[in-house]
Structures are given as structure tokens and as C-alpha cells.
Design a protein around this nucleic acid. Structure first.
Lengths: 227, 227
DNA sequence: TGCGCTTATATTGGCGCCAATTTGTGCGCA
DNA sequence: TGCGCACAAATTGGCGCCAATATAAGCGCA
């Protein structure tokens, strides 16, 4: 008799919770109750705590003894610093990728860009975020340094977007789409300088949504939610 | 009556195990038995499994269902790619740091360098690794982008050194020390180009220990250790 | 005597309970 | 009526057991 085994792909709960946080399901400062997470993600207590511990190590949530875990409040300074790091990495990635982008690859990039434009017009917030990420990855994946492109993804997912950056205006989205057009055309004309400049501008301005004195956005409300 | 509470700084077991791996306590390909880890680190089963899961997510160990966790075999390509990323980040860090290094800071850097030389002469392998890391951090910490310097540390600790890179020859160590001297003098003369070149060379050559066809070093022996 | 099957052992991994602690509520007292 | 204390409810977190599975050992049979 052949042995039947349930091949569950060993879900990575920490990543799922992290995604939920970056998508705004949980607000900065909000308490993450283990019991809630258990039923929301249909996971066991063990996995929940394990995931929470991991996220705490990553600095995505803060842990208060005997109180629980709460979503880290995005520090404007840290966000800006992470953007600077992203620029460093993504500029390198796109520079490495350019020589390896032929007509076929360009076509895929263009369709990824189209997908983003569609998401801007008719998609949900999550669609917009995902198709935006997919567009960039479609470019970076051609960098010979595969670790680099993986890293770019990891860093991007690590930053907790403030509530403001999470709800960009339609104008913001259109500006993003315009940047994508710039990037694509720079790739098409093989203009490395223009390409680098476009990427740098794109990332920089993605953090421009953060007003100067951000910080306490949603502070009172989120803090009010008791643990 | 005042309440007495045991303020244990909430140890991060995953980091401890990771350190043990990078220090060579566990060889690539070796199986990590949970029971052994329990008593070695005086931790409970829960924490061990949690830490292991985290390390698996970081790609430091591989997880085989119902078999356990084993130390990831360092892939030469990945190691090289990570070195390239380290160069990118550390060059940026040192560039940012230079303008903020005054006489007082330079003095501390010099003493860190001395500490490394002492470790080379009389210290253990762990001492050498630690004092080397301390030297670099003593420089990078002056970069205004604090996230960057933290990041540099994280990346450095993420790479699993192959057994060869782990046991550098005395000549390797001396070369490393020489690089440090170059770096210090470049800082002293404020020669940014020389500084960048020195850092780049230092990191690049730290991976030169890996011979072309590395991979299977310690393969048979480590694999023999049954789970 | 060697090979294949069955049995035994060690290890992993899923799951759950209960003590400790904190927060919320209600009662009593000034 | 307002303040403070005590009690109750909810949540976290430490800990341990036991089933499932892989590996090793033992045994019978050709």
C-alpha cells in the first residue's frame, strides 16, 4: 500500500503576518492578540508565537513582556534611511540587469507596467502594491547577482509603510506610473544614466508621502485598542 | 511589598545559534538535533524550534520534514554574491562615515585595530572574528544613516562561512591586518578614493579563501553524522 | 551466509493545559 | 459623589506529553 502523506507546503506564517501588516490590515501601534491571529490565520498557538518572535527580531513588531506584541510605529527617520538603502541596492540591481534585457525581456516588463496601470485604474490597494512590486522585480530578476534581487524584495517588505504612504492619492499613483514609463523608455534606449536617475527618483518620491512631522498618525486610535 | 521580577533580557536564541554556526561550532551539512540544542543552550524545546524555524526562513539552515534541520551548505556563488552586496553597503557606509570621523573617533578606530592585531597574534578564532567585526563597526557607526550600519552587521552575520574561510591561515590574517592599516591611514589622510578601494579590496579578498571548486568540503564527514 | 522483512528506538512535531500577570469592573468607604 | 482597593476576566507565556515518522537493529528465511 502506498503511503499517503499530506504535503502541506510548510507555510511561513511570519511572512503572512508581515504581509498583512504591510498591507495595512494592522495599524502601527496596534496590539496583535495571539488569540485573534490564531483564528484569523487558522494557525496554532505555537506557530503564532514563533512568527511573532521572528517579526520582533526583524524589528517589525515590538514585544512587551506579559503585554504582547504591537506593530512597530514607523519612525520617519528609519523609513528615510531604508529608502536610501533601497536606492543603493535597486540602482545596482537595475544597472546589472540592463545588459541582460533583450527584446523579449523588455516585452514582459512592458506588460508588467501595463498591469500596474490597470491596477491603478481599477484594482484594489493590494493589487496596486503587488503589481508595482511585480514590475520592479520583472526588471531586477535579470541582474546576474540573484542574491541581490532577492535582497531587494526582502528590504522592500521590511519597511512598515505608515498609514499615509499606504493610502496614496490618485495623483501619487499616476506619478508612480509615470516613473515606470520613464524607466521603461530608459531601458529601451539603453540610457543607463537616465535609468538610474529614474529609479532613484521613483524610490525617493515614494517616501515623499510622509509629511515632515508624521509620527503620531493614528496614534491615539491605535493605542486605544487594548491588548 | 515591592514586587520582584526576574528581568531576563529576553535572550534571542536564534541569534545565539546563528553565532555558533558562523563560529564553526556546527559544520555545513551537519544535522542540528533539537535535543542537543536544548541542553547546549539550556533552552526549552519551544524556543529551540522557534529559533530553528527563524533560521530556516533566513536561509541559514534547511528544513527537511520529519528529519530535522541541517546547516545550509554555503554555495560558492551565493557567498560571492553576498560579498558583492557587502561591498556595496560597506563602501557606502564608510563613505558616509568619513566626514564624521574626527581625531577622537580615529583614536578609537586605531585601538580597535590594535585589538585585532593582538587577536591575530594571541587570540582564539572567535576573538579574531569578533575584533575584526568590531574594527569595522567602529568605523561604520559614524555613518549618519544608522540603519545602514545595522544592516551591514546583519548581512555580515548572515553569510555562513565555509570551513575553509573559517580557518584562515596566519598569512590570511596578516593580510587582513594589513588591509586594516591601509584603511586607517586612508581615513587619516582623508583620501576617500583610497579608502573605498581599501575596503573593497578587504572584503573581496576575504572571500578569496574559497577555492574554485569548493562545495563539498567536509561533505562526507558532516553528512555521516546521522540526524 | 546473505538478503529482505519485521520490530525497536530515537527524534521530530503537533497540540493543549495551566500558572503568572495585567487590565477591567464593581464594591465599599470617606 | 469620588477615590481607592479588591475581585474577576482575559491574555500571555512557560512547559510537557504523545502520536507520527525516519532510522537502526534484530530476526527469519531462502
Amino acid at each position: 500500500m502506498t503511503k499517503i502523506r499530506k504535503e502541506q507546503p510548510k507555510r511561513h506564517l511570519a511572512a503572512e503576518i508581515a504581509a498583512a501588516i504591510t498591507e495595512g490590515a494592522y495599524r502601527p501601534g496596534e496590539w496583535l492578540r495571539q488569540i485573534d491571529l490564531e483564528e484569523t490565520f487558522a494557525a496554532k498557538r505555537f506557530d503564532v508565537r514563533s512568527a511573532l518572535s521572528e517579526l520582533a527580531a526583524r524589528g517589525m513588531v515590538t514585544h512587551v513582556a506579559n503585554r504582547g506584541y504591537q506593530v512597530m510605529r514607523p519612525d520617519l527617520t528609519v523609513v528615510r534611511e531604508m529608502l536610501a538603502i533601497r536606492i543603493l541596492l535597486e540602482v545596482e540591481a537595475v544597472t546589472q540587469a540592463l545588459p541582460h534585457i533583450g527584446p523579449a525581456e523588455l516585452e514582459r516588463i512592458k506588460s508588467a507596467q501595463k498591469a500596474f496601470e490597470n491596477a491603478v485604474a481599477r484594482g484594489s490597494k493590494a493589487d496596486q502594491a503587488n503589481s508595482n512590486a511585480a514590475f520592479h522585480d520583472e526588471i531586477y530578476r535579470h541582474a546576474p547577482n540573484r542574491s541581490l534581487s532577492k535582497f531587494v524584495v526582502e528590504i522592500r517588505n521590511r519597511v512598515i509603510p505608515g498609514p499615509i504612504a499606504l493610502w496614496p492619492s490618485y495623483a501619487d499613483l499616476q506619478r508612480s506610473a509615470a516613473h515606470h514609463v520613464d524607466i521603461v523608455s530608459a531601458i529601451e534606449t539603453r540610457d543607463i544614466d537616465a535609468l538610474v536617475a529614474a529609479v532613484r527618483r521613483h524610490i525617493t518620491e515614494s517616501g515623499a508621502n510622509y509629511p515632515a512631522g508624521d509620527r503620531g498618525q493614528g496614534h491615539t486610535e491605535a493605542s486605544a485598542a487594548r491588548p
